[in-house]
Computed example of a mutant assay.
Amino acid sequence: MMLASIKRYLQHRGPVCLSDIALHLGATPDATRGMLETWIRKGRVRRQLINPACGSSCGKCRPDSMEFYEWSEEKSDG
């Protein structure tokens, strides 16, 4: 049920940060990441890590707000 919810959310929203997906599901970022890994292994979700816009590495940005996921209609080979 949660995997289907993730699929619909990503299809509707486009690229979304991990913290927003977790909030939508009412789950922790770590639990949400684990569910997203299922879709990644199936080639249906792509992950993108974003560097802070400021270009520094001060650590003030929450890591789960810098990790984006998007639904991929095409199943990747491999």
Rank of each mutant, 00 (worst) to 15 (best):
R62Q: 12
I50E: 03
G34I: 01
L3W: 08
T28G: 15
E67D: 12
E70V: 06
I50H: 04
R44S: 04
R41W: 06
S76W: 03
G43M: 07
A31E: 04
M66V: 00
Q48M: 05
Y9F: 13
G14F: 02
V16C: 12
G55W: 04
V16N: 07
R62L: 11
L3G: 07
S72T: 12
H24V: 06
Y9L: 10
L36M: 15
T32F: 01
A27L: 14
D30H: 13
T32P: 01
R41H: 13
D64W: 03
N51V: 11
R13W: 02
S5F: 08
A53T: 13
L49E: 09
N51A: 10
A4D: 14
A31T: 07
D20G: 08
T32Y: 02
E67R: 13
K7H: 13
T28C: 14
G78P: 07
P15T: 02
R62D: 10
K42A: 11
V16S: 13
R46H: 12
G43W: 08
P15Q: 02
D77R: 09
R13I: 03
S76T: 05
H12R: 11
G26C: 07
T38I: 15
A53M: 12
E73K: 01
R33A: 14
C58H: 01
R41I: 06
I40D: 00
L23T: 04
N51K: 14
G14C: 04
L18W: 03
C61G: 02
K42Y: 06
I40R: 00
G14T: 04
G59N: 10
D77N: 11
A53S: 15
R62T: 10
E37H: 02
S57N: 07
V16P: 04
T28S: 15
G55V: 01
L25Y: 12
R41G: 06
I6Q: 01
V45F: 03
Q11L: 12
G26F: 04
W71G: 01
M66Q: 02
I6H: 00
S72G: 09
N51Y: 11
S65D: 09
S57Q: 05
K42T: 07
S19K: 15
A22F: 03
P29Q: 03
R33H: 15
Q11C: 08
D64H: 10
D64M: 06
C58G: 01
K75D: 11
R47H: 05
M35H: 11
G59F: 08
C58N: 02
E73N: 05
H24P: 12
Y9K: 07
A4C: 09
T38R: 10
G59W: 07
M35K: 04
P15H: 04
Q11F: 09
C17Q: 05
K7S: 11
E67I: 07
C54P: 01
P15L: 04
M1T: 14
A27R: 12
R46S: 14
L23C: 10
N51I: 10
P52Y: 04
D77L: 13
R33M: 15
P63G: 01
R47D: 06
T28I: 07
V45C: 09
